[in-house]
Amino acid sequence: MPALNSTENVQLSEEEAEQLANELKHQLRHGQQLSGDEAAIEKMVAGLGDRRGLLRLTFAESLGTVGYAAVPALCRAMCEHENVTVRRAAAKTLTLISDRRALPFLLKALLNDADPVVQGSTVGAMASIGADAVEGLLNILVDPANTPMQTGLASWGLAFVGSRAPEALRKAAQSEDARIRTAAIAALGDQIQNLDDQAARQLLMDAMRDPDEEVRAEATTLMSKLNDSSWAVPLVIPNLRDQSALVRKNAALSLMKLEDPSVVEELKNCLTNENDDSVTPIFKLAISQLTRDRE
């Protein structure tokens, strides 16, 4: 899709918006094809700014029905419209269409719009597109210039995409960039838990021994979220002796969450040899919690 050309925003009065919404509802109800010409689309986009929620919903559903033809106008509204209600609704409507051509504009809005609802809606639209959105979401996660809000949303979006784009995530988990491996590993949980993806499971096992401590730490944390203690515990225990304090902390916390009291003695042995003051409280917490569970 070419760069968007700015056009003057169409304005609708409340009466015009209500009349148009009623016409659109009638057409939708009777299965009639909606007009996809530029003027009709611009009027529907203008309706996204109406103060009445039900009318906005009608315009959004209508634009979703129009589909691909509405994408340029929706992208323009999302990125450029002065009314935040329109920007929010445009981003949400793009979720209904799931057109990969919108990805650059969704990224632009996520990175430049200060409104958190717009940001969240852009990630929702990206996630609905699937595998093609993975690269952009990963780039957001690994760029230190992005805000915690942006990276948190990207992480959510990546996890949501996971089950729909297993190959893309598996590829990312083997990236030469440790930051991308870390982000991809964090998103593998759904594939392992719900799809029983054995390739993803092997990638997680490999990540437990990754040369980068952030990757090992993320993999160790993910182990505690998979509700499979018989598989996870033997893999997590060696990381109690990892050279990285962060990995050792995450290993102790993961074992605590896996709720297997049989690891208490192992934790006590590791605590005896632990010299990092930031790690020992975590070991003690895990021992205390698991001892209560055993009793």
Rank of each mutant, 00 (worst) to 15 (best):
M1N: 12
P2D: 12
A3H: 14
T7I: 15
S13I: 12
E14R: 13
E15Q: 15
E18P: 00
L20A: 05
L20S: 04
A21M: 04
A21V: 00
E23L: 02
E23Q: 05
H26P: 00
L28K: 03
R29W: 12
H30T: 06
G31F: 11
S35T: 13
S35Q: 12
A39C: 00
A39D: 13
A40D: 06
E42N: 04
E42S: 07
V45Q: 03
A46F: 02
R51N: 11
L57I: 10
L63R: 11
T65M: 15
Y68E: 15
A70N: 00
V71Y: 10
P72Q: 12
A73K: 13
C75W: 04
E82M: 06
V84K: 14
T85R: 07
T85V: 14
V86D: 05
R88F: 00
A91L: 02
T93N: 04
T95R: 10
L96F: 15
S98Y: 00
S98M: 10
S98D: 08
R100S: 15
R100M: 13
L103S: 06
P104A: 13
L111V: 13
A114G: 05
D115N: 14
D115F: 06
V117Y: 10
S121Y: 11
T122W: 13
I129G: 08
G130V: 09
A133E: 06
E135R: 15
E135W: 11
L137K: 10
N139D: 08
V142H: 08
D143V: 14
P144Y: 11
N146C: 11
T147G: 01
G152S: 00
A154V: 09
L158M: 01
F160C: 14
F160I: 12
A165V: 03
P166H: 14
A168L: 02
A173L: 07
A173T: 05
A178Y: 08
R181A: 01
A183G: 09
A184P: 03
A184Q: 02
A186F: 07
L195P: 03
L195F: 12
D196G: 11
D196L: 05
D197M: 11
D197K: 12
Q198S: 15
A200K: 10
L203M: 01
M205G: 09
R209Q: 13
E213L: 08
A217Y: 05
A217R: 06
E218Q: 15
A219P: 00
T220F: 04
T221V: 13
D228H: 13
S229K: 07
S230I: 11
V233G: 00
V233N: 04
V233A: 02
P234H: 14
I237G: 02
P238M: 10
L240A: 02
L240Q: 02
R241L: 08
R241K: 08
S244Q: 05
R248Q: 09
N250Y: 14
M256D: 03
L258H: 05
L258K: 02
E259L: 08
V263F: 07
V263E: 05
V264A: 00
V264N: 01
E266W: 04
L267Q: 01
L267V: 11
N269F: 03
T272S: 04
E274G: 02
D276K: 08
S278Y: 14
S278R: 15
V279H: 00
I282T: 15
A286T: 01
I287W: 05
R292T: 14
D293P: 10
